[in-house]
Nucleic acid binder design. Sequence first.
DNA 1: ACCTGAACACCGTTCAAGT
DNA 2: ACCTGAACACCGTTCAAGT
Lengths: 242, 242
Amino acid sequence: MPSPRPEVPSANHTDRPGLTRARIVATAVDLIDTEGVAALTMRRLGARLDVEAMSLYRYVNGREDLLEAVVDALVDTIEIPGPGQLQPIDGWQAFLQVLAHDVRRLALEHPAAFPLIATRHPAAPWLRPPLRSLRVVEAFLDGLRSRGFNDSQAVAAYRSFTSFLLGHLLLESAMQGADMSPAEEPLDEGDADLPNQDAELSLAEYPTLTRLRSALTEDHTEDEFEQALEHLLVRLDLELSQ
Amino acid sequence: MPSPRPEVPSANHTDRPGLTRARIVATAVDLIDTEGVAALTMRRLGARLDVEAMSLYRYVNGREDLLEAVVDALVDTIEIPGPGQLQPIDGWQAFLQVLAHDVRRLALEHPAAFPLIATRHPAAPWLRPPLRSLRVVEAFLDGLRSRGFNDSQAVAAYRSFTSFLLGHLLLESAMQGADMSPAEEPLDEGDADLPNQDAELSLAEYPTLTRLRSALTEDHTEDEFEQALEHLLVRLDLELSQ
DNA sequence: ACCTGAACACCGTTCAAGT
DNA sequence: ACCTGAACACCGTTCAAGT
């Protein structure tokens, strides 16, 4: 009855299934989403998996490799618009529109992880965040080629499209995840003689900022995204016909 | 700065002058520039200053505060175009051109630090990287206002300008600082049976990537920057007259 | 085959103690 | 006033040992 486990591929009916690289990565993503990147330590991740930290090293080549795997897992959720989401009639503009919104979904679903996607060095220098996987870039280039772009036009579009996504989505995800990294302490009132830089930074000397403060605070990130995307498409259209 | 001022102004003729917050921050920037952000530990920074790590806590509220100070110091090197660099004749286009290139200078001079500038949460939520200091934003808004922008146009320009800078310069700085973080080990030849993911990632299954590899590898970051900047100016011009 | 105990080097941070 | 020694909690990582 307590027989040593045979070849059985997945026969484990306990609540805590065996460790897997996939399960480790998924839990890591969850930990980042809920507590921030700084909270992702090997030991805490182990604890979430009911395992000692050292066990993770069977499936992951250290913390750096784990972070790499997290980024890859998230980027792999990007869906390249195919026959499912797109009518054959729709051109490259619809293709880029749908793709842009899926990358935006990724950024807003994982605001704490997006800086990793944005700043960790990709496997190859010509992979540009956030479209930083071979699969995604291949599909991106093919998608544009099959919709009328030639090679150099597709490459140029890859460059401008990634720059656009990175700038907008990094700012938007920063806005989203605002201040969740430093786990919300009840604010300390002491040390009133210190500069106290963060509480209410002194706007006194900045009349224009003071006047425009409420305008600056308004969140127009979605409008900005749509408008900038629209302008990018116009710009690409110009370059196509020249 | 209500710093604990010693009575003696600067009477220290030794090669190692006394500690200063400014000196600590400057050395930290240097450490990041030369060895990457991961190398910036309190202990190593102390060693560079011929001091024990604990001494730093007199001038800096821990590592997070130090990183904040590093970012602020770098952002403070941004020069807002004034009567010196700009003729009164020049309009807002010249103003933004000159400013954009100065921020680009910052990114290329400190490629390892730029991700910090890009991703650390600013002091106020309406401060957007990389123009994330009160001084810079005030001067930016005033600069545009004095050149014909009204309030909401200036605020809109702040949003699109920062998005543009962030996307382009983060990619360009990543390109610049490529792989200097993991201190250049002589590559290990062993373990040829493992996936060996990083050495030469397998392009076999990606025909388009294989074909366009050389095109993708070309560095056109400067052209991209100039072109995208030009298009942003055109776009802003349109919004001005509508 | 898979997980762990023990150990090591390094880290951030505090505080009483030195000068 | 300024710096340090000693200590603590936590971290990444290795490896022999357990089952």
